[in-house]
Nucleic acid binder design. Structure first.
Lengths: 214, 214
DNA sequence: TAGATTGTTAATCGATTAACAATC
DNA sequence: TAGATTGTTAATCGATTAACAATC
């Protein structure tokens, strides 16, 4: 009954295809071949075709791919045709930045609540959404159908809050805290480790200066 | 003269090793075996040993690895023993969040300047750093030794600013704008694509609901 | 039809895991 | 010394690229 599992490498590339197709769509490009797309994206045409054929035949021999159709289909694959209710835990700078990122809303990710322990922040509103006390989190989660919790709080607090949220039924975590979690297998955690990203940059920069040539 | 190139997969894992070793260090753990570390990190012990041996023999047979030593060495590999001067382009929510992220400073990433086009923001200070007008960017970059530009500005403006910065000699880019760049080969770009990260999460969530089992 | 380009199989390349001799 | 664990080679696995028949 199971389709063959899609590899993580493929999934990682899908959002980038989606972005490029969106850009093409804005430029009113109607069709594109894997060859032309490969040139723009700097990947091989072969990889594009292989990737897409994990999900079905979206193209047409001799023609290529219809940009709008392919964009829509990849959107569906990515689950962007659905809506997701999000809560943001931690109303510090990063939490606020996430709350203010209106673009997410456009893609169907709706910020339902923002929580913090800091009494100075509680009661303030961001884009019309009130910052609530973390004490009210359990009640809020149980009263609302929340799909995703964005964790933008210190790593000291993050693991316990995540554990609580999981026990209250939240299945999706968008994690910004520099820590990993011990959560049930059916819970999905997507990590954004900013510090690790910056370290990768510093690695590559320092490598560069190490080498004599270049 | 060149050492064999380190694969990207290995580099991607180094910051995570570094984080785990830092955590162990805080807990005053003196030594750790690849087996024990593999259990905590949920990777194979074999992979840990292979990864580390790209850079040298940091362990000792029968003993394992000295946590502090390994932490320091991986830090050096990642270039964290050096200082980097950063400028942040875009003082919106995300730019401000980055500017306020004091933790970077602790790791040797020094925020030297913040720039924006918005006259309402220009003149304000974040952690003692004045937000400057983007018009002054060229002069500032030429007067200061800047290693990294964090791009936290709209994708409409990002490519041109990046091109300018590269022409003024900036080699490292930490990119938060949802776009790719056409920059000289010796320029290094590390991307943080938040929207793409969120799409990966929605993919996995919607996959989950698709499957009957689970 | 002729040309273009996909979908897909086969070949290659690279990364991960297993195994074990070396050695602390 | 005996036990533990690394460093490293070999085996396996998976992902990418190349090639080409199918077909629009």
């Amino acid at each position: 009954m199971d389709k063959k599992e899609i590899s993580k490498a493929v999934i990682n590339r899908l959002p980038r295809y989606y972005r490029y197709l969106g850009d093409l769509l804005e430029k009113d490009v109607v069709r594109i071949s894997s060859k032309e797309l490969s040139k723009r994206m700097k990947v091989t045409a072969s990889q594009i075709r292989q990737d897409l054929n994990n999900f079905g035949g979206f193209g047409q021999q001799g023609y290529g791919y219809n940009v709008e159709y392919l964009h829509t289909e990849i959107g569906k694959i990515l689950g962007l045709d659905k809506q997701y209710n999000i809560i943001i835990i931690g109303a510090g700078n990063l939490g606020q930045a996430l709350a203010n990122y209106a673009d997410f809303e456009r893609r169907g990710f709706i910020v339902k609540g923002i929580f913090d322990v800091n009494p100075r922040l509680v009661g303030l509103t961001i884009r019309g959404i009130e910052i609530r006390n973390l004490d009210n989190l359990e009640e809020f989660v149980k009263m609302n159908q929340i799909d995703i919790a964005a964790l933008a709080l210190p790593k000291t607090q993050a693991p316990q809050v995540a554990l609580d949220l999981a026990s209250w039924g939240i299945k999706g975590f968008w994690n910004f805290a520099p820590t990993d979690y011990q959560l049930p297998d059916d819970v999905i955690v997507e990590n954004v480790h900013l510090a690790e990203s910056l370290m990768k940059l510093s690695y590559r920069l320092s490598e560069k200066y190490k080498s004599v040539d270049n």
